[in-house]
C-alpha cells in the first residue's frame, strides 16, 4: 500500500516538473492528458508498482532532479546528424553511471529535431538520435530493458526562436528518468 502511495507521489512530482520543462514527458498539454505523461508512457511496457529511492530533491545524488541538473539529462546533435560528440559521450558516461547506481529507475530517451525539416522525416531523425544515446548507454553497461526510446520530431522545441542558437538546443536526446522497476 505504502509503496503505491510513494510511487504515485513520485510520478506526480515528475509530472509537475514537466509543466515547467515542456520537453519532458511530451509537454504540458500532452502530459496532462495522457493521464500524466510519465505514467502513460512508462505504462506501455514497464511495471510501475515498485519504487526504490525515497529521497527527492536536487541535493540528493540519487534523485532524478540531481540526474537532470547535475549529471545532465541531454545531449545535442549537429544539423541532420545523430553522431555523438565527445561532449555528448561524456554526459552519457555520467548518465550510465547514475543509472547503474540507481537500478530502480527506468529511462525514456526522447529524440528531438529542430524545425528546419519536414515533419515525418524529423520523427525518424529523432528516433535515430534517441537510439544513438540508448546504444551508447547500453555499451556502458545499462541493461537494454531499462531504456526505451521515443521521438517527438520537431513537435516539442525547448527553444522557440528561429535561429541557429535555438535550433542547436532543440536537436537533442533527453534522458527522462521515471519511477518503475523491472518486472
Amino acid at each position: 500500500m505504502n509503496k503505491y502511495l510513494t510511487a504515485s507521489i513520485l510520478v506526480g512530482a515528475l509530472a509537475l516538473s514537466a509543466c515547467t520543462r515542456p520537453d519532458r514527458f511530451g509537454g504540458g498539454a500532452g502530459a496532462g492528458a495522457d493521464g500524466m505523461g510519465a505514467g502513460a508512457g512508462m505504462g506501455a511496457g514497464f511495471d510501475q508498482s515498485a519504487i526504490g529511492q525515497g529521497g527527492l530533491g536536487a541535493g540528493n545524488p540519487n534523485s532524478p532532479e540531481y540526474f537532470a541538473q547535475s549529471i545532465g539529462d541531454r545531449v545535442l546533435f549537429a544539423v541532420d546528424q545523430s553522431t555523438l560528440s565527445s561532449e555528448a559521450m561524456a554526459t552519457l558516461d555520467g548518465q550510465a553511471q547514475w543509472l547503474m547506481t540507481n537500478t530502480d529507475y527506468l529511462a525514456v530517451i526522447e529524440g528531438h529535431a529542430d524545425e528546419q525539416g519536414t515533419r515525418e522525416y524529423n520523427v525518424a531523425l529523432g528516433a535515430r538520435r534517441a537510439n544513438a544515446a540508448r546504444e551508447y548507454l547500453i555499451s556502458r553497461g545499462v541493461p537494454a530493458s531499462r531504456l526505451r526510446t521515443i521521438s517527438y520530431g520537431k513537435e516539442r522545441p525547448v527553444a522557440t526562436c528561429s535561429d541557429p542558437s535555438c535550433y542547436a538546443q532543440n536537436r537533442r536526446a533527453v534522458t527522462v528518468i521515471a519511477a518503475g522497476a523491472l518486472s
Binding site: 511530451g26 498539454a29 492528458a33 515525418e120 517527438y152 520530431g153
Partner: peptide
Amino acid sequence: TDSNSLVLA
C-alpha cells in the same frame, strides 16, 4: 479529437 495527446499528419 480532443487536444490531450499529440497528433500528426
